[in-house]
Amino acid sequence: MKRHLLEAADLDRADATLVLDTAGQIESALAGREVKKLPTLRGRTVVNLFYEDSTRTRISFELAAKRLSADVINFSAKGSSVSKGESLKDTALTLEAMGSDAIVIRHQASGAPHRLAQWVKGSVVNAGDGTHEHPTQALLDAYTIRQRLGRLDGVRVVLVGDVLHSRVARSNVWLLSTLGAEVTLVAPPTLLPVGVGSWPVQVSYDLDAVLSKADVVMMLRVQAERMNASFFPSAREYSRRYGLDARRMAVLPDDAIVMHPGPMNRGMEIAAEVADSARSTIVDQVGNGVSVRMAVLYLLLGGAPE
């Protein structure tokens, strides 16, 4: 493993598999236990540096660090010196001066974790930067797919929705193709990034055409906060063409699964009956997120410092 986890491309196939295997071992080590705590990172400090709102990712990282006995500091930009104008660099150096060993950062600017990694001595974990990447989400998605289907090699994954703004989509494209899955993107042309031709994916504009051959359908959130231009005519039209409802779900092969990174817009990209169906892994994904983030923190902080 490299010292930081900034993007899915930081992980080659061996590293990515190591993270997934480690997460599995940690899950089995904690299964059925009353005391869900391991002493592994005692005395280490993990800072959650969140410039953007988040529920599940921040709580998931916090829980992961606490279950490994690390000390956790939660920092959200609101109500901190950031509102007085302190720069990212100064904030990071301040935190490091207080003895942080790893910084988990979410930032609205793409590339912020990369900059941070150049300034600090400890490890940096990207918890989502702008429209760039969200590598631990991709890891937990890959873990969930492997758990449900037993493999990743050759698994056909269809990613549906706002690929343009989705860091989850970017990270999944790179990680899943590293791990041997075949990824197809389905989106309105306006919500596909310019460079998509160079990605290791197939592209389709017709959801119905690809569903019958999908092992995994991953629905992306329609990001209302980034819908600042007319990407599609109306929510109803989007939902009709790209939403996953019961009729479309019925077309899927028998053992196919439906995923969503959350938070969901029920009735928009995914119908409530689909989200609550037995095919849905949405709740599993949240639980697996803690195991996968424990694995990442262990692999970054668990050994000798370089």
Partner: peptide, 18 residues
Amino acid sequence: LYRDDLRLRGVRALEDTR
């Protein structure tokens, strides 16, 4: 995950707990 010498070496792969 319970070793007292984790920091003396590179990170170690985990094994089964069952």
